Simulated assay, not measured.
Amino acid sequence: MLAVIEKVEGGHIARYNRSLNHSVEKVWAAITQNDKLGKWMPNLQVVDLKQGGTIKFNMNDGTGNSFDIKIRDFKKNEVLEYEWGDDGWVRFELYPKAGGCLLVLKEFISTINDHTSKDLAGWHVCLDVLIDLLNGRYHEKFPKENWKKWHQKYIVSIEELNH
């Protein structure tokens, strides 16, 4: 399911809803514990898990370059929000439900540009990889073919926003 993109004050919010057959605690561990996080989002490493804490973004391009991302909001097993891009943010919200939980990922995008569809497709595929990991399937490599397919769909989605 494509992210729903809505216009808000100052930009847009892309919202991905994923209904999971896993507990809030298991999903929380997958988005906050480095040994699990690295298996679906290898660029990120949690340094200090708290509001105002730090997540390191590793370029993973062979240079060893990285930069710090500030955690903007944090409530254990409920909310993790951090800076993303120049003036955006990403927010994970977990809601318990019978037999599992609802994972909501929101990305605030201040300016739609040529990179937006790539970023949206990236989050889409990362969520698919996360869900596979939770279901016991690990991807050795990022599924680039899946990303290409979703990228084309997000290009169309962005074009529709602009009309």
Results as ranks from 00 to 15, higher is better:
4 V>A: 13
6 E>D: 13
8 V>E: 11
8 V>T: 09
9 E>K: 12
11 G>F: 01
13 I>E: 01
14 A>R: 00
16 Y>P: 04
16 Y>M: 00
18 R>Y: 05
18 R>N: 13
18 R>T: 12
19 S>R: 05
21 N>S: 15
24 V>K: 07
33 Q>D: 12
36 K>R: 14
36 K>T: 05
38 G>L: 02
42 P>I: 00
45 Q>D: 06
46 V>N: 10
46 V>E: 09
48 D>V: 07
48 D>I: 05
50 K>M: 08
50 K>R: 15
52 G>A: 12
59 M>R: 12
68 D>T: 06
68 D>F: 08
70 K>Q: 14
71 I>V: 15
74 F>M: 08
74 F>Y: 15
77 N>P: 08
79 V>W: 03
79 V>A: 09
79 V>S: 10
80 L>W: 02
82 Y>C: 02
83 E>S: 15
83 E>N: 13
86 D>E: 15
87 D>M: 07
92 F>H: 01
94 L>G: 01
96 P>F: 05
97 K>Q: 15
99 G>Y: 03
99 G>Q: 11
103 L>C: 10
104 V>T: 14
104 V>G: 04
105 L>V: 09
108 F>A: 03
109 I>Y: 03
113 N>K: 09
113 N>M: 04
116 T>F: 03
117 S>N: 13
119 D>A: 11
119 D>V: 03
125 V>K: 05
126 C>I: 00
127 L>Q: 00
129 V>E: 07
131 I>A: 10
132 D>N: 14
132 D>Q: 10
134 L>M: 10
135 N>F: 03
139 H>M: 04
141 K>M: 10
141 K>S: 10
142 F>T: 02
143 P>F: 07
148 K>L: 13
150 W>H: 09
150 W>A: 12
150 W>S: 12
152 Q>M: 09
156 V>G: 06
159 E>V: 09
160 E>P: 00
160 E>I: 11
